[in-house]
Design a protein around this nucleic acid. Structure first.
Length: 495
RNA sequence: GGCCCUAUCGUCUAACGGUUAGGACAGCGGGUUUUCAGUCCGCUAAUCUGGGUUCGAUUCCCAGUAGGGUCACCA
C-alpha cells in the first residue's frame, strides 16, 4: 500500500517552527517510503483566517524543499495539483454536509438546536460543580416531529456526534504506544457548525479518509481529540489510519511554543539570517534523532535515516545556542559565491551600497567574516569598517600595559614604511612578510606594533588581523590610500 | 478540577536488564596567536522520589511528585 502523509495547516498565521517540524516529519516519512506527501489547507474558520498566511505557509515549505506531491505548492504563485481535491476545505462544504447527514441517519450524530446562552449556562453550572464541561445531550431527546418542524422553520442548528457511554476507545500511537480513553470523557463534539462549515474533527476525518492518508503525523496537542476521530472512523465504517504524535516543541519556559513565548514564525528566523538548510537540520532534531552521533544532515540524508520509531516521547526545548552553532557551521561550509548571494540583502539593509564596490572586494570582505558569523544579519555591523572610516577610542589603540609614546611612534613608523611599499605588495603573504620583517628590524614588540595597526584599521577591539584587513583593502585601487589615511588618523587621535 | 502525555548533565539526546551512564551545544581551562573568530586538546555536569520484579534496574511494573497538553459552533 502506498504511504501517504499530509500536512494540514490552517491559514491562521505564518508557518511556525512547530509546523515546519511536523511538515518535515510527514515529508520525510512519505519520501522514505516512496510515498506521497500532501498539503491540504484547513480553512474552516472564516473568522480567524489571516490574509497572506496561506501563501506564506506554502511558499516557506517550498523554500525548505518540502514540496508536496499533491495539494498546494508554490511555483511563482500558489498552485494546486492532485486527483483527490479540492485541497481547500472551504471548497468541500457539500462533502462534509453529506457525511454529517449520513451520520445523523445512522444515529451516530444528531441535530442540536441549543442556543449559545443555554450552552454557556450549562457549562457554568458544570464548572461550579467541578465537573468537566460536556454537552448534556439535551437535543438527543427531541422527537422526529420536533426536529422536522425546527428544521423547516430554519432554526439555527448544528450536528453533533452522538458519543456512546461506558465504552473504551483504544488506539495505538506510533510514538506513545497504546492509549485508552473512556467515552464518558468524550464530549458530543459539534461536527457541522450552524454556518454550514465543518469543525476540524469532521473535516479532518473525512478528508484524511477520502485522500487515502495512511499516517497522520501531527503535534502532541492532538492526542486528546484523537478518540473523537476514532469514533468517527468507526461511525463511518472506515479503517483508521496510523496516528503519530511527535512531542511538542517547548519554549525556554517549558511551555508549548507560541506567539506569547517569543518569535516562532519561520519567517522571523529567516529574517534574522538563519539558513533554511541549518534550520531544517536543527528542527529535525527536535524530538527525533538518528541514534548515531552524526548531527549534520541534509534533506537527502534525513530521508535516509528517518524512521517513526526514532521519534521520542518527551517535549524538546528550543535551544538557540545550538541553532546558532549549526547555523555558523553551515555558513562556514558554504561556498563563498553562495554565501555572497545570500548576504547581499543583509548588507543592503545595513546601509552598505554594494553596487559601488567590486565583487572581488566584497567577496574578500565576506571571506574574512565567514568563520565568525553565526547569523547573516550580523554581517552589516561586523564589516562596517570596510566601508566607512572608524571612530577611534584612543585607549583602545594602546596595547595592553604599553605606553602611548611607544604606540604612537610605532604607528608613525609603520605608516611611513607602508607608504614606501608598492600597492601590489598589499596582499596577504607579502604584506605580512614585509611588515613582520620591518617590525623585527626596528626592534618593536610584535604586540605593540600589530595591535595598534589592527585597531587603526578596524577601530574595533575584536576583528580579523591587520594583514587580512590590508589584504582585503588591497583589492581596491585606492586601498593603500585608505590604509595610510587610517593610520594617520589613528596617530592624530593618539597625539 | 476531569482526562491524557512526559520524566537521563543547564539544553538536545545515546545506552538487547549487566557501560567508569556515551555524544553534541553551552560553560570552564589550555595549545595555536597581535585581538576576535575558527581549529585542536582537556575539565565540570545527569538517571525525580518511594516501592516492587530480578542475581542485577536508567531500562520492566505500581504509586507519589513535578512539568506539559487538552477539555469551543478554534484548529
Amino acid at each position: 500500500m502506498e504511504i501517504r502523509t499530509r500536512f494540514a495547516p490552517s491559514p491562521t498565521g505564518f508557518l511556525h517552527i512547530g509546523g515546519l517540524r511536523t511538515a518535515l516529519f510527514s515529508f520525510l516519512w512519505a519520501r522514505k517510503n516512496s510515498g506521497k506527501f500532501i498539503l491540504r489547507v484547513e480553512d474552516t474558520d472564516k473568522a480567524r483566517t489571516v490574509p497572506g498566511a496561506l501563501e506564506n505557509i506554502v511558499q516557506t515549505l517550498t523554500d525548505f524543499g518540502l514540496t508536496p506531491d499533491e495539494g498546494f505548492y508554490w511555483d511563482n504563485g500558489l498552485k494546486s495539483r492532485g486527483e483527490l481535491g479540492p485541497y481547500l476545505q472551504s471548497e468541500r462544504l457539500d462533502i462534509y454536509k453529506k457525511h454529517a447527514e449520513e451520520l445523523v441517519s445512522n444515529k451516530h450524530a444528531y441535530y442540536c438546536f441549543c442556543t449559545e446562552q443555554r450552552l454557556e449556562q450549562s457549562r457554568k453550572e458544570q464548572q461550579e460543580k467541578k465537573l468537566p464541561p460536556k454537552y448534556d445531550k439535551h437535543c438527543l431527546n427531541l422527537t422526529a416531529d420536533e426536529i422536522k418542524s425546527k428544521l423547516s422553520s430554519n432554526q439555527p442548528h448544528v450536528i453533533r456526534l452522538n458519543v456512546p457511554s461506558d465504552q473504551v476507545v483504544r488506539f495505538t500511537d506510533l510514538v506513545h504506544g497504546e492509549i485508552k480513553v473512556s467515552t464518558n470523557d468524550v464530549d458530543d463534539q459539534v461536527l457541522l457548525k450552524s454556518d454550514g462549515f465543518p469543525t476540524y474533527h469532521l473535516a479532518v476525518v473525512v478528508d484524511d479518509h477520502l485522500m487515502n492518508i495512511t499516517h497522520i503525523i501531527r503535534g502532541e496537542e492532538w492526542i486528546p481529540s484523537t478518540p473523537k476521530h476514532i469514533l468517527l472512523y468507526s461511525a463511518f465504517g472506515w479503517e483508521s489510519p496510523q496516528f503519530v504524535h511527535p512531542p511538542n516543541i517547548l519554549a525556554k519556559s517549558g511551555k508549548k511554543l507560541s506567539k506569547r513565548e517569543g518569535d516562532v514564525a519561520v519567517k522571523d528566523f529567516l529574517e534574522k539570517g538563519y539558513l533554511a538548510e541549518a534550520l531544517l537540520n536543527f528542527v529535525a532534531f527536535l524530538g527525533w534523532n538518528p541514534k548515531t552521533e552524526q548531527e549534520i544532515f541534509n534533506l537527502r540524508e534525513l530521508i535516509e535515516s528517518f524512521s517513526l520509531e526514532k521519534i521520542n516521547r518527551s517535549g524538546a526545548v528550543l535551544d538557540f545556542d545550538k541553532l546558532d552553532w549549526i547555523n555558523g557551521l553551515y555558513i562556514r561550509n558554504m561556498k563563498i559565491e553562495e554565501l555572497f548571494a545570500r548576504v547581499v540583502p543583509f548588507l543592503v539593509k545595513a546601509g552598505i551600497k554594494t553596487e559601488n564596490y567590486p565583487k572581488s572586494f566584497l567577496e574578500k570582505v565576506l571571506l574574512l567574516e565567514q568563520e565568525r558569523l553565526k547569523k547573516l544579519s550580523e554581517v552589516g555591523e561586523r564589516v562596517k569598517y570596510f566601508f566607512e572610516d572608524p571612530q577611534y577610542d584612543p585607549q583602545l589603540l594602546i596595547w595592553k600595559k604599553s605606553d602611548k609614546k611607544i604606540i604612537l611612534d610605532n604607528l608613525q613608523k609603520l605608516q611611513n614604511f607602508l607608504q614606501t611599499l608598492p600597492s601590489e605588495k598589499f596582499a596577504k603573504e607579502s604584506i605580512e612578510r614585509e611588515v613582520k620583517q620591518f617590525i623585527e628590524s626596528q626592534g618593536m614588540k610584535t604586540g605593540e606594533a600589530l595591535w595598534p595597526l589592527r585597531v587603526a584599521l578596524s577601530g574595533l577591539d575584536a576583528s580579523p588581523g591587520p594583514f587580512e584587513i590590508m589584504d582585503v583593502f588591497g583589492a581596491l585601487s585606492e586601498g593603500k590610500e585608505i590604509i595610510l589615511k587610517r593610520l594617520n588618523r589613528a596617530a592624530e587621535i593618539l597625539f
